[in-house]
Design a protein around this nucleic acid. Structure first.
Lengths: 196, 196
DNA sequence: CGTTCCGATACAGGATACTGCATCGTTCGG
DNA sequence: CCGAACGATGCAGTATCCTGTATCGGAACG
């Protein structure tokens, strides 16, 4: 349940961790208990609106109401602040993007032979294309596609391709099966290129 | 109480009223009850995060997490765009249908306990709601929902529920693993017109 | 008038958030 | 090896949400 709030909560958690604030420290600042926060972050509990506000305010964040139309713009703003080198083409309709990506995968299959990972990407893209993605989700997809494009011919493409496949699949799972108790949440919304 | 959320709730209310949406209409779209919404708006109740998200999403709004630093910027953006003729797609009979169905399932879970089949239905509905369904597909969904409604309290509900779950899942799978030969990219996913 | 839609209000019952502990396994620094 | 801090988990008890249903007074329209 509570699939709607997953992404907000995941964001809050990421930011908490990135700021090096422990659950206990946050609990004091926000006036909640540590056990409460742990359960919220773990998805075992759906916070009340005011609890969540307390929590995010203590992280120097504000919850804002934004018309859907403006979500990409706001996302751009926020992201620009977080990662200066990221740069968004706000233009293209999503359909085109997918078509392009699918063509790319096809080409790669052709050139390097089809691998399980490429198949997975292919499959997942075809699925995601039909879904009404939130702007946030679309943003993630966009990044992944861009990464694929960038590294398609690279020497170490393999682990990158695998990573992309994994990320896409995670997104798909989160949508297809609005999971109540998914063990791991947190698709990295920002640049985490830690692994690979 | 709940002084933190006051402003968000007030905003939501203003936008609802400005869009000419009644509490009852909103309650259907959001999957909440009218009485619930009234209490939230009146400040006599503090909504859960997910309730509030349901509510705002039904108003074409997104709840976003923004660094405090950027709040003025976002505020500017939103304000600048605040168009007088902000119209909501009041139509979407499909959305209504799904909201209704989801509530029905919730109620059934409540009454008879959640079964694997009900969970499956719940899950699948949440998925299908997000997808752009063809008329034919929507037709199928409509029938299944109607059937569920009809037999919800029947003695032999169990096998019927199972059958419905299976049918829905089959539909979902057929969408999730769309054949590559499907050229149907031709959905105009907006119908969106009537904007500036 | 009578109908219809509106928002506010009430109330019972069940679900669940939330507190305030206490504890566990792990990780990290000394 | 020890102790500290971390996050996860358990649990009893209370507060509150949320549904479902129903009613009410008011405004709008015929």
């Amino acid at each position: 349940m509570a699939y709607q709030s997953e992404s907000l909560i995941a964001q809050a958690r990421e930011i908490r961790e990135a700021s090096g604030v422990s659950q206990r420290a946050l609990s004091e600042r926000a006036g909640l208990t540590q056990s409460h926060i742990s359960q919220i972050e773990g998805g075992r509990l759906e916070p009340g609106l005011s609890s969540f506000i307390d929590m995010t305010r203590a992280l120097d964040l504000e919850l804002m109401l934004v018309p859907k139309k403006l979500v990409p713009a706001v996302l751009g703003l926020v992201k620009a602040q977080a990662t200066p080198d990221m740069h968004i083409h706000a233009g293209q309709p999503n359909d085109k993007r997918f078509a392009r990506a699918e063509r790319l995968v096809k080409k790669m299959k052709h050139l390097y032979g089809s691998s399980a990972d490429l198949d997975r990407i292919d499959d997942t893209l075809r699925f995601l294309r039909r879904v009404n993605l939130s702007d946030q989700e679309m943003q993630l997809v966009r990044e992944l596609i861009a990464r694929l494009e960038r590294y398609q011919a690279s020497e170490q493409a393999a682990p990158i391709v695998r990573d992309i496949a994994q990320n896409l699949q995670r997104l798909r799972n989160s949508i297809a099966h609005a999971a109540p108790s998914e063990p791991r949440s947190a698709y990295s919304l920002d640049g985490g290129d830690a692994d690979a």
